[in-house]
Simulated scan of single mutants.
Amino acid sequence: MSFPNIWHHRKVADTAARGCDICFKPSSSVLVTPEKQDYFYVCPAHLKDNKFCTSIVDEVAVAAKKKKEMEEEIERVKQEYEEKQRKKKQKEKAKDSEKDKSKDDEKDRDKDPKTDDEKKEGEAKSKDKVSKPEVKTPPVEDEPRVFALQRNFYQARLDKKRQVEMAKRNRERLSDPSYFPSVPKGPPGS
């Protein structure tokens, strides 16, 4: 039985970790064929080794990912620009209102000088409370998910799969009573 040389990298729980087929260290990384015909545990370090396997890059997925990131960046820049424009308008309105209030405040200052200072502190606090746009860190480059084994390792997987199938067939044959010859029922020589 043959299967394509395409392997998807999957992670399992740490409690389900088994020994790597190459170095026998416990590993929670598994390489699986698309139809789940075969799988084996492998260390993440081996996946980076070009002599063991090479990554298969899906160009369409990479292009779609770049396009999505670009759209997110454009949206973020638009939001920042709108926020700056809104702040500008608020400052202009505040200046206009301060000019109008300054005439009224001169009368109030004579009465209570502390209220003016409290108002300025309150405005400063409200400006600090305005949510600042979140700075997003660029996403860490994802590890490749699809691999192709080198010829020798792929052939070893095929051979191992064939041996398992042959052993299974042999067990089935040995358990079938019609596989063995029957004992002769007549007298000898006739």
Results as ranks from 00 to 15, higher is better:
residue 173 R to Q: 08
residue 27 S to K: 07
residue 51 K to E: 15
residue 143 E to F: 04
residue 137 T to D: 12
residue 36 K to D: 13
residue 7 W to N: 07
residue 49 D to L: 03
residue 135 V to E: 14
residue 113 P to W: 07
residue 85 Q to H: 10
residue 182 S to A: 15
residue 98 E to G: 11
residue 62 V to F: 08
residue 148 A to G: 05
residue 127 K to N: 03
residue 93 K to R: 12
residue 103 K to H: 09
residue 125 K to V: 00
residue 99 K to V: 03
residue 76 R to C: 12
residue 167 A to E: 14
residue 7 W to M: 02
residue 148 A to D: 02
residue 43 C to K: 02
residue 115 T to W: 02
residue 73 E to G: 09
residue 128 D to S: 05
residue 89 K to Y: 14
residue 173 R to A: 07
residue 71 E to G: 00
residue 148 A to T: 06
residue 83 E to A: 15
residue 146 V to S: 01
residue 104 D to I: 14
residue 71 E to N: 03
residue 68 K to F: 11
residue 129 K to W: 04
residue 85 Q to K: 15
residue 178 S to R: 11
residue 149 L to K: 10
residue 189 G to E: 15
residue 97 S to K: 14
residue 25 K to S: 11
residue 9 H to N: 11
residue 74 I to P: 00
residue 116 D to G: 13
residue 153 F to G: 00
residue 130 V to A: 08
residue 67 K to R: 12
residue 157 R to L: 04
residue 187 P to L: 11
residue 176 D to W: 01
residue 147 F to Y: 15
residue 62 V to Q: 14
residue 43 C to V: 00
residue 120 K to V: 00
residue 115 T to L: 07
residue 35 E to Q: 02
residue 147 F to G: 09
residue 67 K to H: 15
residue 181 P to E: 07
residue 156 A to G: 05
residue 156 A to H: 08
residue 135 V to W: 09
residue 117 D to Y: 04
residue 155 Q to F: 07
residue 108 D to P: 05
residue 13 A to Q: 10
residue 58 D to I: 07
residue 173 R to L: 13
residue 151 R to W: 06
residue 25 K to L: 13
residue 188 P to Q: 14
residue 53 C to H: 03
residue 72 E to M: 06
residue 99 K to S: 03
residue 35 E to V: 02
residue 14 D to Q: 04
residue 149 L to I: 11
residue 102 S to V: 14
residue 149 L to E: 05
residue 35 E to G: 01
residue 104 D to C: 08
residue 5 N to W: 03
residue 99 K to H: 08
residue 180 F to V: 10
residue 62 V to W: 05
residue 185 K to G: 15
residue 156 A to R: 11
residue 142 D to F: 06
residue 87 K to Y: 07
residue 93 K to G: 11
residue 122 G to T: 09
residue 70 M to P: 06
residue 154 Y to L: 00
residue 25 K to Y: 08
residue 99 K to N: 11
residue 2 S to H: 13
residue 168 K to C: 08
residue 35 E to M: 03
residue 31 L to T: 06
residue 168 K to W: 09
residue 95 K to D: 15
residue 85 Q to F: 10
residue 90 Q to V: 12
residue 33 T to Q: 10
residue 149 L to H: 11
residue 172 E to S: 07
residue 93 K to C: 08
residue 176 D to Q: 01
